[in-house]
Design a protein around this nucleic acid. Sequence first.
DNA 1: CTGAAAGCGCTAACAA
DNA 2: TTGTTAGCGCTTTCAG
Lengths: 347, 347
Amino acid sequence: MTQLRSDAMKSNRPPTLVDVARVAGVSRATASRVINGVESVDEKMRSKVQAAVQSTGYIPNTVARSLVTRKAGAIALIISGSDGSAEQVLGDPFFGRVTSGVVRSLLPRKVHPTLVLADSDAARADAVSYVRQGKADGALLVSTHSDDTLPGLFVDAGIPAVLFARPGQDVPISYVDLAHELGASLAADRLVSRGCRRVVTIAGPSDVPAAQGRLNGFRQAMARHGQAYVPVAKGNFTRESGELAMTELLAAHPDLDGVFAANDLMAAGALQVLHDHHRAVPTDVAVVGFDDSEPAHFTRPQLTTVAQPVEEMAAEMARILLTHMEDPTLRPTSVIFDPHLVPRESA
Amino acid sequence: MTQLRSDAMKSNRPPTLVDVARVAGVSRATASRVINGVESVDEKMRSKVQAAVQSTGYIPNTVARSLVTRKAGAIALIISGSDGSAEQVLGDPFFGRVTSGVVRSLLPRKVHPTLVLADSDAARADAVSYVRQGKADGALLVSTHSDDTLPGLFVDAGIPAVLFARPGQDVPISYVDLAHELGASLAADRLVSRGCRRVVTIAGPSDVPAAQGRLNGFRQAMARHGQAYVPVAKGNFTRESGELAMTELLAAHPDLDGVFAANDLMAAGALQVLHDHHRAVPTDVAVVGFDDSEPAHFTRPQLTTVAQPVEEMAAEMARILLTHMEDPTLRPTSVIFDPHLVPRESA
DNA sequence: CTGAAAGCGCTAACAA
DNA sequence: TTGTTAGCGCTTTCAG
């Protein structure tokens, strides 16, 4: 290497703190203080340093900073799920909304989320070690299935983490979630107020807490309305499973006049089957979905559904993580959001 | 999985290379060599070090490593667009597919993309400085509008970057893209082979290169088929604009029998309007969309459309970036992918 | 093939 | 308030 003693032009290497200090005629420490906004610096030196920063085009090397502060100034956004499911999750607009909320909430702090997939045991181990390596100070966890081991791994490792949705297992960890029961009761109220008397429901997988909550909430609300028994068919949140479930329910209960599906995709499938069976929606049968996702806009008739404030939930999740990163002694918290009904055509 | 910490009484701090070296009875240098897979290490020392890594539970501190190697081992996935548009982009499943492809392609190398939004001038500056700080070795750029300044900024800064879609401005930068003209000609062929003789098209914004390509390609293909003139209405890729455009075209050309829309959303809008005007699809009017996005599945009739291999394109984009990061002297390359027709019901 | 030593760029005691 | 002095944990010449 050539010697870069002369400060006339050292264009090759990006300027470092020593360059700034030398140009400003102060010590590295003082330069550092100014750059980090430490109050107790003389105003004259401060402006000299700031000028030097300008003239040198100095950009702090966050890697070096991280090494000593032991803070990465970064967080991981982890998508967890069963083997190979991450692709599916990413393709779901729902995840995009989560990301959007997270990013928006992080923006003012200038921290950016790093996407880590954890849809296999190897990937899960990788995710944990990713954080352990010091590449992130905390983790945001979006997982699909309830027997996910990741929350436990993070708790054990003492890494700040917040979940989107209540953990399936009993783990002391912070999370945001939706009042699924309340959402389901909104759907029930709607159906009943339309005059539906023989209502059925298409539930999600019973190992998914959200699906559980929606089913329970719906049953309880219908019971309050006087319908003690609600026939259930189980789906797995796909459109096809919704079609299957609807077909089944129609066969067993030909006189049904209302359907609550635990998500929009299944509701869309139900709509299709009802159409094929020449049941007019909403006059013969009313249908309510859940999530207010894309498909809800594209069904005919358009789907009445229960919406969750995904972006706000995600933003809150990020906010919680930030506070827990600042003060790791904080106890786990949870914030539950209220859903609301989006009345469209199907009910 | 339950790995107890070794008896050696080092504090609660995670083990470092010196710990490994001490346990293995070698120097830090040798330990480092083994950990980094340097060949020229005696087999005996190698295994001693490996054993020490096991027993200490050592995890390399990538931050320290980065400081000396000057490589972050990370890349940024930058979403650029007009002010505030990033939210929209993230909500689009299309972006999820891009992410999915990127992540999948990066997985074997254990690098994870960091999401950076650049939907304002401030955010764009932030994005550049993010990379300059050394937090990422390169950037993947997904931008919506063609007059994006970000590609230029990266080129000027000498930062390896690859775009999804050809740059709107003339910038020497690598990119992946779709053969939009070819895709449009696929649509034209389909329409013509169905017997359509009076074909119209709903184009996208003329400042978007992809929209340009689709329009040009469609015109040329129709010309080859003998229809010299193709009436055009311009939309902005939204469903509403598709409805507007279709209404307009229907008024001006009541006898039209085929429509090519530059994306699915506009095609869905067109379908709606045709339905309202009691034109049967595909018997009276055939409709072809573009993108094979979610909505294409939910229209009735289901939309015949042109699909692009988004995940593969994204994966290739990541691959290109990786090679350019390894060898920064490489010239910009581009890879153009072929679309294919997805025949469904509407044409 | 191995080890000693010199930093990478920065912050944080501790003095002055 | 400022400067001096140590490192953070790791890689990498350079001798041996």
